[in-house]
Amino acid sequence: MSRQTRNLLPFFLGIPMAAWVAWDLRGYGLPADSVLAVGLMAWACFSRAADLLISARTQTVHRCPDSRCSFSVRLSGVDAAESRRWQEVAHAHPHHRGV
């Protein structure tokens, strides 16, 4: 999947979901601007969720080797050298979170 397609897909996936939410709200007698606001909010939420799900397939995650530490780095679209550099950062970070 190309980067441009990966960027546009969440945008278009959110539209039918937001329209469905707005369509369901029309029967409650809400003002049109309220339905529009909720529809736009639903579009933003569904688009962001789709974006996170799509980008999760292409991400690399480097975590601290200490099982008690929650430090992690998420990378997308980097070469092997950059990924290795961030892996070293994750293994040698100075502050352990969650300890």
Rank of each mutant, 00 (worst) to 15 (best):
L36T: 09
L8P: 01
V78L: 14
W86V: 05
L75N: 04
P65F: 11
T60L: 04
Q87E: 15
L75F: 04
L9R: 07
R84L: 13
L36I: 04
Q87R: 14
L9T: 11
C69E: 07
Q87A: 10
T5M: 13
C64E: 03
V99A: 13
C64A: 05
H93W: 06
H62S: 13
C69R: 02
D79M: 00
T58P: 00
A50G: 05
N7Q: 15
G14L: 03
V73Q: 00
G77S: 02
G29F: 06
N7I: 10
E88F: 06
G29I: 00
H62Y: 12
F46M: 12
A42Y: 01
A92V: 06
S34C: 06
A19W: 13
A19G: 11
L53K: 01
G29M: 10
M41S: 14
V89K: 10
P16S: 02
W23A: 01
G39L: 03
T58K: 03
C64M: 01
S76Q: 12
R26D: 11
L30D: 08
D33T: 10
S76W: 07
G14R: 04
A44P: 08
V35N: 05
V73W: 05
L40G: 15
F12V: 10
G98V: 08
W23D: 08
L13F: 10
A92N: 12
L8R: 11
R85I: 00
G29Q: 10
A44K: 12
R3T: 15
M41Y: 11
V78W: 07
P31H: 12
M1E: 10
F71L: 03
W20P: 00
A80Q: 13
G27T: 06
A42Q: 01
F11T: 11
G77L: 01
R97A: 12
L75W: 01
G14S: 00
L9H: 06
A19D: 10
A81Q: 11
G98T: 06
V38R: 15
A90N: 03
W43E: 01
S83Q: 03
A19E: 09
S2P: 12
P16E: 07
A49P: 05
N7D: 15
A56T: 03
S83K: 08
D79N: 07
G39D: 09
S72I: 00
A80D: 14
